[in-house]
Design a binder for these strands. Structure first.
Lengths: 238, 238, 238, 238
DNA sequence: AATGAATGAGCTTTCATTCAT
DNA sequence: GATGAATGAAAGCTCATTCAT
C-alpha cells in the first residue's frame, strides 16, 4: 500500500510546481516588490554564494545562509523554497558568464595559434572567476542527474565551438584530417576543464604564463599544428 | 532534512574525521583472528563498496552496509571505527590497482606510439574497473582536504611516469623540447582522467576504438610527434 | 518543471511502501525480537493511546508519546514510521472489538424486543469502551478520506446486521413492510451512534436504564412494532 | 511536520483562544466605518468561509484567507484578532439560519405526519445549506469545549421544539405516553443530524424522497403513531 | 562475537503575528 | 487603511554511535 498520509502532514499546495522560465531547478522564489525586500533577497543570494563556496552545498545550512545575510531563517522561506532554489539563481549567473565566454571572439588579429592562445587565456579567466561554483556543480553532478545535465550543458557551447574550430582548421588544411573533430574537442576541452579545476579549486599551484603556453602548444600540436620555440605557428608544417 | 551525522562526538562540519598516523583516514580497524570474524569483516567491506557505489559515501548509512553484509549494525563497530575507516580499506585496493597500472610496462615491441596506445588502453581498463570508487574520491575531494590529497596521490605515479616518458622522448629527439614535461604530463594526464570519468561514470557514450585512437593521436601529436592516417609514427617528422 | 530535488533531501528507500496485511494506514512498523523491545513497543502504543485520547491525534506530538512511554523520541522511529503508523495498531484493536460486538448473538431467549434491547445494551458497552478512539476517528474523518472510509467500514457490519434483522422481521410480519430496510438500518444505526458519542464522548449525561429503554422502544416502534408500558412486545399489533 | 501556530503569544495546545464576554469565541473585531473598509471586511469573511470549507479550520492559514480575499495578510489583523474571531462571524450566520429553521412553523394544513414530514424536509434543506460549516463545528467540537458548547447550543432549539411536539402529541393521545419526551427528542434529533452529515458532508448517496419518507415514517412510528403504506396516519391506531 | 535497543544533537520547515513603511 | 517583510517558537525526522544483553 502506498504511503497514505493519514492526516496529511504536508499540504502540496500547487506553488512549487510551476517553474520560472529558464530556472534550472525548482526556482519557486518570490520576487519582492519593495526596496527593502529586494535588498534582503539580494543579501540572501550573496550569503548563499559565500556559504556554498565555503561549506559546499550539502553542508550548507539554511541557517548559515540566513545568519550570513543578517536575517532570521524565516525570511529565507519568504524568498526561496529551499536551498535548491537559491542555487538556481546562482547558476543562472554562472551559466550566463560561461556561455558568454564560450561565444566571445578574440579580437586579436594574430595567427591561428594566437587565437587559440587568446581563447585559452579567456577560459582561464572565467574558470578562475567561477571556480567555486563550477566545482560545486561538479561535486553535485556525481550524485544528482539534474546537476550532471547542468554540468554537461555548461560545457556544451565550448565543445561545439571547439569542434567547429577544429573542423574549420581541417578544411583549411591546418589541422590533422585524421582526427574526429567532436571527440578531439571533447578531450581537449576536458583537458582544460580538468586543469583549471586542479589549479583554481584544488589549489595546485601553476605558473600562469607557462600554463597558457603549454596549454596552447599542446592543443595546437595535438590537432596537428607545429609550433616553433616561441610558440608561433610553423607555416606549412602540415 | 535532518542532518544525519552522529550525536556525541559530532564531527566538525565537512571534515571526515581526524586521521591517524598509520592509516590513511581515521582509526585503525581491528583485524579479526577467527575465521568467522574474518569472513564478517570481508562481508562488511564488500557491502560497503556496493553501498558506497550505489548511494555515494555521504548518503550511505552504516545500517545500509550492515544490512547488505547480513549483519547487525552493532558488529560494524567491532571492525571499524566509522564509515571513514571502511573507506580506507576500499581505497587501499583501488590505489594499489591504479598504481600497478601506472607501473605496468607494455610488452608490445611496437614503436613509441604503440607504447602510448597500449598505455592509454590500459588506463582505460583500470579506470573502467574503478570508475565508481574513483568518482567517489573525486566527489569527496571537493570538500575534504584528506580526499583531495588521496586524489592527488593516486594520480601522482601516472604523472611521474608520463613526465619521465616525455622527458625521455625529448632527450631522444622524438618529443617537442619546448614543452615543460611536468606541466604537459599533468595536462595530458588530466585529459585522460577527465575523459574516463565522463565516459565510465557520467555515462557519456563513446566508441572505444575511436577513443583509444583519438586519445593516442592527440597525446602523441601534442608532445610533438606526427602520426600518419593509420596512427603510425611518421619517422623523422620532428 | 516538477520539483526536482537537487540533491534529494530525503531518500525514498522502498521500505514504507510495503504494507502489512490488514494495516489500515502506513503500518510499516518493525516488530521487536527481544523482550525489552517488545516492552518498549507496547509502552509506546499505550502511551500513544493515552496521548491521542487526551490531546487528539493532531495535537499529539511524537515527543509527547515518547515522554509518556518513558523513552527518547528516537526510539519511536525505531518502531514506527510516523504517528499514523501507531494509530494503525490502535485501530486494529478498536475495529476488532467493534466488529465482534456487531457479530455477537444475544443469548437471551426472550422475544424480539429483548433481542433488540440486548443488542442496544451491548452496543452501549463497546461504544463506551471505545468512545475516545471512535471520536478520534470521527474527528479525523472530517478532513481525511482515509479516515472517512475507516469510519464507514466500522459501521458497516452493524448496518448489515440491522438491515438483515429488519428484513427478517418484515418477512415474519413483525416489522413494517413499507420501510426500506437498508435506509432504516442506516438511520436507526446512526441514531445510536450519535447518541453514544454525545453521551460517552461529549459528556452529555443520561440515565443508563432510561437510555436503553428509550432506545429500544424507539427502535422497535420505528420499524413498526408496538410495545406496552413495560417495554414488551404487544403481540399481533402489526 | 512543523507545528504551525504562532510564536509570541503561543496558544495553549488544543485551545482556541480565551473567549471574551460578548463574542462567542475570541476578541471583538472592529467594525469599519468607511465603505471601502466594510467591503474589505466582507471580502475577508467570505474568503474565510470558502477557505474553511475547503481546508478546514485548522489547516486554513491566514494567508490563504487574505489571498482569497485579494488583500495582503496584514489587513486581516485590522479587522480580526485571529482566525477564531472570523469564525465567530461565520457562526453567527449559521446559528441564525439554523435557529430560524427550528422555529419555522409549517404552513401545511395536513395532518400531524404531514407536519413531521414538512419539518424533516426543512431540516434537510438547512442542513444541506450549512453542511460544511456544521461539519466544521462538529470537527472542532471534538477537541474544543468552546465548540462543543456551540454544537449543543445549535441543536438545542430543535431539541426543545421536538420535545414540545412529542409532549403535545402525548397529551393529545397521539404519541406513546411511555416515552420520555426529552430523551426521545434527543435521540430522534440525533438520528437526523447524523444522517444529514453522512449525506451532505461525507457524501454517502441517498435518494431524497426515500430519505424524507423513511425519516418521517421512522420518526412518527417511533413515537407511537402508525402509518399506512402511503405514509398517512392511521387514525386511532394508538 | 553478535545483536539490536536506545539516545539525542541537529537540521528543516511552517505560519501566526508584529510592525516599519 | 493597506502592504508585505521579518521574526522565531516548535515539531518532525535522521542516523552515527553506545551499550546492555
Amino acid at each position: 500500500m502506498a504511503r497514505p498520509e493519514a492526516s496529511p502532514p504536508r499540504r502540496p499546495r500547487g506553488g512549487s510546481g510551476s517553474s520560472q522560465a529558464g530556472a534550472f531547478l525548482s526556482g519557486a522564489s518570490s520576487i519582492p516588490t519593495t526596496t527593502r525586500g529586494r535588498r534582503t533577497r539580494a543579501a540572501l543570494i550573496n550569503a548563499a554564494r559565500e556559504v556554498f563556496e565555503e561549506l559546499g552545498f550539502r553542508d550548507a545550512r539554511i541557517s548559515d545562509i540566513a545568519k550570513r545575510a543578517g536575517t532570521s531563517y524565516g525570511v529565507f522561506y519568504h524568498y526561496f523554497d529551499s536551498k535548491e532554489s537559491v542555487l538556481d539563481e546562482l547558476f543562472t549567473s554562472v551559466t550566463g558568464d560561461m556561455y558568454n565566454a564560450s561565444q566571445a571572439r578574440s579580437k586579436s588579429d594574430g595567427d591561428v595559434v594566437d587565437k587559440i592562445r587568446a581563447s585559452n587565456r579567456q577560459y582561464l579567466v572565467v574558470a578562475a572567476r567561477n571556480a567555486q561554483l563550477i566545482a560545486m556543480i561538479e561535486e553535485l553532478a556525481y550524485r544528482d542527474p539534474q546537476f550532471r545535465e547542468l554540468k554537461l550543458r555548461i560545457r556544451e557551447p565550448f565543445l561545439l565551438r571547439n569542434e567547429a574550430g577544429i573542423r574549420r582548421l581541417q578544411e583549411q588544411g591546418l589541422a590533422d584530417p585524421n582526427l574526429d573533430a567532436a571527440m578531439a574537442a571533447s578531450m581537449l576541452g576536458g583537458m582544460i576543464e580538468h586543469f583549471t579545476l586542479l589549479w583554481f579549486f584544488h589549489g595546485v599551484p601553476y605558473d600562469e604564463e607557462l600554463a597558457v603556453e603549454t596549454l596552447t602548444r599542446l592543443w595546437a600540436q595535438a590537432i596537428g599544428m607545429r609550433l616553433d620555440e616561441s610558440g608561433r605557428l610553423v607555416q606549412g608544417a602540415r
